Amino acid sequence: MRPDVSRWLRRRTFSAATWCAAELAEAKSARGSTVSVVLPALDEEPTVGTIVGTIRRALVEEAPLVDEVVVVDSGSVDRTAAVAAEAGATVVDTATVLSAHGRVPGKGEALWKGLHATSGDLVVFVDADLVGFDPQFVVGLLGPLLTDPAIGYVKALYDRPLHTPEGIVPSGGGRVTELLARPLLNAWWPELAGFVQPLSGEYAGRRELLERVPFVSGYGVEFGLLVDLAGLAGVDALAQVDVGTRRHSHQSDAALGRMAGQILSTAIARRPGAGRPSSELLQFLRTADGVEAVSWDVGVSERPPMRTVRAAAGEPGPLS
């Protein structure tokens, strides 16, 4: 493992259990900060109301940590907007926010317009399809931001149980992460290899940073934000928080393929100079003490065409 990544993992990886909502609410008040929570949603009627209600009850009413909860609806055809409003969220539609800029499809569009529709100094993004949502997700993401002014962006790390025909696999589920996003980061941005869940849909940042970077319209938004914010503020301004287990709906392989295509396009648009990519791949295992990094050498060698080998050795070709 690169020494800089090892140092970053020690200094910038936290546990959500470190903080409680009441203590952070006091820290927020002392700093005069405000907090907005944004949920991008498209046909999430079964889950969005529970998430909004949980946040309002635990983090608005019981502990005044969150100042506004905004659901950004991307044209749902079910009752997502109505359920979210009934649970206490402010609901906006991507078609009506920044309407002069038009409307393009994709999750990143909802996040970008959610940034415009809110006013908090600190902005927390939470996916609207989470099952068994725990408000400690939000508390954990805000912890580093409210206790360390040097940190500007925080991503969640977690286990993702994968539902299979044989039952529930306790970890896994991040197929695009393991098959595409992690190898891309390790190859071209190895300084970011310490992020356990680079595509996490739960993250928080300071508005002053978030408003200085572009938002990719589709599923490449998380990858783009990670790379762009690291380039803007430096890797040490980024952190991650272990929030335990995250449960949500899983997509088909075909849908994941489309997601991977958007992430690949995002990465190619940001690819650094044409130097040779790093051959180290950092993966992570859950242990009793948290997460453990495991390093692999995934470098490859290319053998020259056999005809050139034969020619260099003065050997006749196979058809001679």
Rank of each mutant, 00 (worst) to 15 (best):
A87I: 07
A267T: 03
P3E: 15
D67G: 14
V300P: 00
P144M: 01
W19Y: 13
A89N: 09
L199T: 13
E222R: 02
V52L: 06
V291L: 08
V235N: 00
L146S: 07
A30C: 06
G172A: 09
G152E: 12
D67V: 03
P105V: 04
V243Q: 05
V5I: 12
A58W: 03
E178G: 13
A81L: 04
V104L: 13
V169F: 05
D129Y: 03
L209T: 00
A100P: 00
R247V: 14
R160V: 06
E191H: 03
F125W: 02
V123Q: 01
P316L: 12
S15T: 11
Q197G: 00
E62S: 12
E222C: 09
T164I: 05
E178A: 15
E178T: 14
D78H: 04
I268W: 12
T164N: 08
Q262Y: 04
F195M: 10
V66I: 11
M259A: 10
V69A: 13
A117I: 03
L225C: 08
R246L: 14
A288W: 01
D289N: 11
R11L: 12
L229I: 14
P316Y: 01
V139W: 06
G108T: 05
A313R: 05
L226C: 06
R247G: 01
T266H: 04
E315F: 01
R206N: 07
